[in-house]
Protein backbone atom coordinates (compact mmCIF):
# COMPACT_ATOMS: atom_id res chain seq x y z
CA UNK A 1 0.00 0.00 0.00
CA UNK A 2 1.14 3.53 -0.69
CA UNK A 3 0.98 6.01 2.15
CA UNK A 4 -1.57 8.74 1.66
CA UNK A 5 0.42 11.46 -0.05
CA UNK A 6 -1.37 14.24 1.70
CA UNK A 7 -0.19 12.86 5.01
CA UNK A 8 3.40 12.74 3.96
CA UNK A 9 4.09 16.00 2.16
CA UNK A 10 7.77 15.64 2.89
CA UNK A 11 8.34 12.51 0.83
CA UNK A 12 9.88 13.26 -2.54
CA UNK A 13 10.58 10.21 -4.67
CA UNK A 14 12.77 7.89 -2.66
CA UNK A 15 14.16 10.62 -0.46
CA UNK A 16 12.33 11.00 2.79
CA UNK A 17 12.76 14.22 4.70
CA UNK A 18 11.20 14.36 8.12
CA UNK A 19 9.89 17.70 9.14
CA UNK A 20 8.64 17.45 12.64
CA UNK A 21 6.06 19.93 13.68
CA UNK A 22 7.90 21.30 16.61
CA UNK A 23 5.67 21.97 19.56
CA UNK A 24 1.95 22.36 19.70
CA UNK A 25 0.40 23.91 22.75
CA UNK A 26 -3.13 23.74 24.00
CA UNK A 27 -3.98 26.12 26.76
CA UNK A 28 -6.63 24.85 29.05
CA UNK A 29 -6.39 26.24 32.53
CA UNK A 30 -6.78 29.79 31.37
CA UNK A 31 -10.46 29.10 31.26
CA UNK A 32 -10.67 29.73 34.99
CA UNK A 33 -9.47 33.21 34.22
CA UNK A 34 -12.28 33.59 31.75
CA UNK A 35 -14.68 32.85 34.55
CA UNK A 36 -13.38 35.92 36.37
CA UNK A 37 -14.18 37.77 33.21
CA UNK A 38 -12.65 41.22 33.04
CA UNK A 39 -11.68 41.21 29.39
CA UNK A 40 -8.50 43.20 29.72
CA UNK A 41 -7.36 41.00 32.54
CA UNK A 42 -7.84 38.00 30.27
CA UNK A 43 -5.58 39.52 27.61
CA UNK A 44 -2.89 40.30 30.13
CA UNK A 45 -2.99 36.80 31.53
CA UNK A 46 -2.69 35.40 28.02
CA UNK A 47 0.47 37.36 27.31
CA UNK A 48 1.93 36.16 30.60
CA UNK A 49 0.99 32.61 29.77
CA UNK A 50 2.63 32.73 26.34
CA UNK A 51 5.80 34.06 27.95
CA UNK A 52 5.63 31.20 30.46
CA UNK A 53 5.23 28.59 27.74
CA UNK A 54 8.24 29.94 25.89
CA UNK A 55 10.34 29.82 29.03
CA UNK A 56 9.12 26.31 29.91
CA UNK A 57 9.76 24.69 26.58
CA UNK A 58 12.72 26.54 25.10
CA UNK A 59 11.22 25.61 21.75
CA UNK A 60 9.34 27.42 19.03
CA UNK A 61 5.60 27.06 19.50
CA UNK A 62 3.79 26.53 16.20
CA UNK A 63 0.16 26.46 17.19
CA UNK A 64 -1.70 27.71 20.18
CA UNK A 65 -5.31 26.75 20.80
CA UNK A 66 -6.97 29.24 23.06
CA UNK A 67 -9.91 28.30 25.21
CA UNK A 68 -13.30 29.37 24.01
CA UNK A 69 -14.17 33.00 24.64
CA UNK A 70 -17.49 31.66 25.91
CA UNK A 71 -19.03 34.30 28.13
CA UNK A 72 -22.36 34.90 29.77
CA UNK A 73 -23.61 36.65 26.66
CA UNK A 74 -22.78 36.51 22.96
CA UNK A 75 -19.94 38.77 21.88
CA UNK A 76 -20.92 41.80 19.85
CA UNK A 77 -19.18 42.71 16.62
CA UNK A 78 -17.30 45.66 18.07
CA UNK A 79 -15.72 43.73 20.94
CA UNK A 80 -15.02 40.84 18.62
CA UNK A 81 -13.21 43.00 16.07
CA UNK A 82 -11.11 44.48 18.85
CA UNK A 83 -10.20 41.07 20.19
CA UNK A 84 -9.38 39.61 16.79
CA UNK A 85 -7.06 42.55 16.21
CA UNK A 86 -5.24 41.82 19.44
CA UNK A 87 -4.99 38.11 18.75
CA UNK A 88 -3.64 38.76 15.26
CA UNK A 89 -0.94 40.87 16.81
CA UNK A 90 -0.17 38.16 19.36
CA UNK A 91 0.11 35.55 16.57
CA UNK A 92 2.41 37.77 14.51
CA UNK A 93 4.54 38.89 17.43
CA UNK A 94 5.05 35.35 18.66
CA UNK A 95 5.30 33.76 15.19
CA UNK A 96 2.64 31.17 15.87
CA UNK A 97 -0.72 29.98 14.59
CA UNK A 98 -3.62 30.74 16.86
CA UNK A 99 -7.04 29.08 17.11
CA UNK A 100 -9.92 30.63 18.96
CA UNK A 101 -13.65 30.30 19.40
CA UNK A 102 -16.49 32.55 20.47
CA UNK A 103 -20.23 32.76 20.55
CA UNK A 104 -21.12 35.97 18.81
CA UNK A 105 -24.10 37.94 17.63
CA UNK A 106 -24.53 39.83 14.41
CA UNK A 107 -27.84 41.63 14.23
CA UNK A 108 -30.52 39.06 14.98
CA UNK A 109 -28.28 36.12 14.22
CA UNK A 110 -26.07 34.22 16.61
CA UNK A 111 -23.10 32.06 15.76
CA UNK A 112 -20.68 29.65 17.32
CA UNK A 113 -17.51 30.41 15.39
CA UNK A 114 -13.85 29.44 15.20
CA UNK A 115 -10.96 31.35 13.73
CA UNK A 116 -7.54 30.18 12.68
CA UNK A 117 -4.98 32.98 12.55
CA UNK A 118 -1.65 32.35 10.87
CA UNK A 119 1.79 33.36 12.09
CA UNK A 120 1.62 36.58 10.07
CA UNK A 121 -1.49 37.62 11.93
CA UNK A 122 -3.87 36.95 9.01
CA UNK A 123 -7.17 35.16 9.51
CA UNK A 124 -6.71 31.99 7.50
CA UNK A 125 -9.94 30.17 8.23
CA UNK A 126 -13.32 30.98 9.69
CA UNK A 127 -15.61 28.08 10.55
CA UNK A 128 -19.13 28.22 11.96
CA UNK A 129 -20.65 25.31 13.85
CA UNK A 130 -22.59 23.08 11.46
CA UNK A 131 -25.04 21.40 13.85
CA UNK A 132 -27.28 22.69 16.62
CA UNK A 133 -28.40 19.49 18.31
CA UNK A 134 -29.35 21.21 21.53
CA UNK A 135 -31.29 24.01 19.85
CA UNK A 136 -29.33 26.86 21.36
CA UNK A 137 -30.48 29.03 18.50
CA UNK A 138 -27.30 29.53 16.51
CA UNK A 139 -27.19 29.86 12.72
CA UNK A 140 -25.44 26.83 11.34
CA UNK A 141 -23.11 26.57 8.37
CA UNK A 142 -23.36 24.19 5.43
CA UNK A 143 -19.69 24.54 4.62
CA UNK A 144 -16.55 22.85 5.93
CA UNK A 145 -13.15 24.12 4.89
CA UNK A 146 -9.62 22.90 5.43
CA UNK A 147 -6.65 25.26 5.75
CA UNK A 148 -3.50 23.80 4.20
CA UNK A 149 -0.62 25.24 6.19
CA UNK A 150 3.02 24.43 6.82
CA UNK A 151 2.06 22.99 10.19
CA UNK A 152 -0.62 20.68 8.82
CA UNK A 153 -3.92 20.67 6.98
CA UNK A 154 -6.30 21.97 9.59
CA UNK A 155 -10.04 21.47 10.02
CA UNK A 156 -12.16 22.93 12.80
CA UNK A 157 -14.95 21.20 14.73
CA UNK A 158 -17.19 23.01 17.17
CA UNK A 159 -19.68 21.97 19.84
CA UNK A 160 -22.12 19.31 18.63
CA UNK A 161 -19.99 18.78 15.51
CA UNK A 162 -17.54 16.72 17.54
CA UNK A 163 -20.16 13.98 17.82
CA UNK A 164 -21.08 13.94 14.11
CA UNK A 165 -18.87 11.44 12.27
CA UNK A 166 -19.67 12.97 8.89
CA UNK A 167 -17.81 16.13 9.95
CA UNK A 168 -14.54 14.38 10.64
CA UNK A 169 -14.90 12.33 7.49
CA UNK A 170 -15.59 15.35 5.25
CA UNK A 171 -12.61 17.20 6.69
CA UNK A 172 -10.37 14.15 6.31
CA UNK A 173 -11.51 13.59 2.74
CA UNK A 174 -10.60 17.20 2.03
CA UNK A 175 -7.10 16.48 3.21
CA UNK A 176 -7.17 17.45 6.88
CA UNK A 177 -4.61 15.74 9.08
CA UNK A 178 -5.05 17.95 12.12
CA UNK A 179 -8.40 18.68 13.78
CA UNK A 180 -8.89 21.50 16.22
CA UNK A 181 -12.00 20.98 18.28
CA UNK A 182 -13.96 22.98 20.80
CA UNK A 183 -16.12 20.70 22.89
CA UNK A 184 -18.82 21.70 25.34
CA UNK A 185 -19.82 18.64 27.33
CA UNK A 186 -22.65 18.74 29.84
CA UNK A 187 -21.79 18.72 33.53
CA UNK A 188 -21.18 16.38 35.37
CA UNK A 189 -18.17 15.15 33.45
CA UNK A 190 -18.59 11.74 31.86
CA UNK A 191 -15.38 10.46 30.24
CA UNK A 192 -17.36 8.05 28.08
CA UNK A 193 -19.21 10.94 26.53
CA UNK A 194 -15.96 12.71 25.73
CA UNK A 195 -14.46 9.55 24.20
CA UNK A 196 -17.50 9.24 21.94
CA UNK A 197 -16.57 12.60 20.40
CA UNK A 198 -13.20 13.69 19.06
CA UNK A 199 -11.31 10.65 20.32
CA UNK A 200 -13.24 8.37 18.02
CA UNK A 201 -13.19 10.85 15.12
CA UNK A 202 -9.41 10.75 15.38
CA UNK A 203 -9.33 6.96 15.38
CA UNK A 204 -11.58 6.50 12.38
CA UNK A 205 -9.85 9.19 10.35
CA UNK A 206 -6.24 8.66 11.45
CA UNK A 207 -5.46 12.29 12.20
CA UNK A 208 -4.16 14.35 15.10
CA UNK A 209 -6.56 16.51 17.12
CA UNK A 210 -6.34 19.25 19.68
CA UNK A 211 -9.48 19.33 21.78
CA UNK A 212 -10.19 22.28 23.99
CA UNK A 213 -12.76 21.09 26.52
CA UNK A 214 -14.68 23.94 28.07
CA UNK A 215 -15.62 24.03 31.71
CA UNK A 216 -18.01 26.75 32.73
CA UNK A 217 -21.44 27.92 31.74
CA UNK A 218 -22.82 28.44 28.24
CA UNK A 219 -26.20 30.10 27.98
CA UNK A 220 -27.17 28.78 31.37
CA UNK A 221 -25.96 25.23 30.67
CA UNK A 222 -23.14 24.01 32.88
CA UNK A 223 -20.34 22.30 30.95
CA UNK A 224 -17.38 20.27 32.09
CA UNK A 225 -14.71 18.83 29.82
CA UNK A 226 -11.04 18.09 29.54
CA UNK A 227 -8.54 19.41 27.05
CA UNK A 228 -6.81 16.57 25.26
CA UNK A 229 -4.30 16.14 22.45
CA UNK A 230 -5.30 13.05 20.48
CA UNK A 231 -3.64 10.78 17.98
CA UNK A 232 -4.26 7.32 16.54
CA UNK A 233 -3.85 4.67 19.26
CA UNK A 234 -0.80 3.22 17.54
CA UNK A 235 1.08 6.50 18.04
CA UNK A 236 0.54 6.83 21.75
CA UNK A 237 1.92 5.32 24.91
CA UNK A 238 -0.22 2.39 25.99
CA UNK A 239 -2.07 2.79 22.69
CA UNK A 240 -4.65 4.98 24.43
CA UNK A 241 -5.04 7.58 21.71
CA UNK A 242 -4.18 10.31 24.24
CA UNK A 243 -0.95 12.15 23.52
CA UNK A 244 -1.46 14.62 26.32
CA UNK A 245 -4.32 15.16 28.71
CA UNK A 246 -5.33 17.93 31.06
CA UNK A 247 -4.03 17.49 34.59
CA UNK A 248 -4.88 19.41 37.72
CA UNK A 249 -3.03 22.67 38.21
CA UNK A 250 -1.27 22.61 34.83
CA UNK A 251 -1.83 25.85 32.94
CA UNK A 252 -1.56 24.15 29.55
CA UNK A 253 -0.85 20.86 27.86
CA UNK A 254 1.72 20.38 25.12
CA UNK A 255 2.84 17.83 22.61
CA UNK A 256 5.05 17.35 19.57
CA UNK A 257 3.14 16.00 16.62
CA UNK A 258 5.13 13.96 14.13
CA UNK A 259 3.49 13.63 10.72
CA UNK A 260 6.06 11.13 9.58
CA UNK A 261 4.95 8.74 12.31
CA UNK A 262 1.34 9.40 11.39
CA UNK A 263 2.09 8.43 7.79
CA UNK A 264 3.65 5.18 9.06
CA UNK A 265 0.49 4.35 10.99
CA UNK A 266 -1.61 4.93 7.91
CA UNK A 267 0.72 2.89 5.76
CA UNK A 268 0.47 -0.06 8.14
CA UNK A 269 -3.28 0.15 8.55
CA UNK A 270 -4.74 2.11 5.63
CA UNK A 271 -8.36 2.46 6.72
CA UNK A 272 -9.06 4.84 3.86
CA UNK A 273 -8.07 2.36 1.18
CA UNK A 274 -11.00 0.16 2.16
CA UNK A 275 -13.92 2.53 1.70
CA UNK A 276 -16.95 0.79 0.25
CA UNK A 277 -17.93 3.44 -2.26
CA UNK A 278 -20.97 1.56 -3.54
CA UNK A 279 -22.42 1.39 -0.04
CA UNK A 280 -21.69 5.04 0.64
CA UNK A 281 -23.21 6.14 -2.63
CA UNK A 282 -26.46 4.53 -1.56
CA UNK A 283 -26.17 6.07 1.90
CA UNK A 284 -25.60 9.63 0.83
CA UNK A 285 -27.55 9.64 -2.45
CA UNK A 286 -30.66 7.68 -1.51
CA UNK A 287 -30.98 6.98 2.20
CA UNK A 288 -30.36 10.47 3.54
Amino acid sequence: MQPAQDFCPTVYGNISVIIKIRVIKVINRIKTIIALNPNIHYEMELEKLIDGIKKDSNEQVDLLVLPSMAVADYLGQKILAERLGRYSLIAKTNNLYLALHAYLKDGNKRYSRCWLIDNCGEILLIQDQTHDKNNIGISISNELKVAKTPIGSIGLLIGDDVFIPEIGRILRLQGANLFIAYSFLPKPYNPWRQWSGIWQQVQQNQVFALESGFTGSINGHATEGKSIIHGPCELTEGETGFISEEQDAAPYIAASLDYHKLAEVIKNYPIHNFYNKHLYKELFSELL
Partner: peptide
Amino acid sequence: FMNYLNIDLCKRYLPHLY
Protein backbone atom coordinates in the same frame (compact mmCIF):
# COMPACT_ATOMS: atom_id res chain seq x y z
CA PHE B 1 -29.22 11.64 14.85
CA MET B 2 -31.78 12.30 12.16
CA ASN B 3 -33.29 14.99 14.41
CA TYR B 4 -30.24 17.15 13.99
CA LEU B 5 -28.03 15.85 11.19
CA ASN B 6 -27.27 18.64 8.70
CA ILE B 7 -28.31 16.80 5.58
CA ASP B 8 -27.63 19.72 3.25
CA LEU B 9 -24.05 19.79 4.47
CA CYS B 10 -23.63 16.03 4.10
CA LYS B 11 -25.00 16.01 0.58
CA ARG B 12 -22.83 18.91 -0.41
CA TYR B 13 -19.70 16.82 0.17
CA LEU B 14 -20.73 13.17 0.16
CA PRO B 15 -20.53 10.73 -1.50
CA HIS B 16 -18.43 12.45 -4.17
CA LEU B 17 -15.47 13.13 -1.85
CA TYR B 18 -14.85 9.38 -1.53
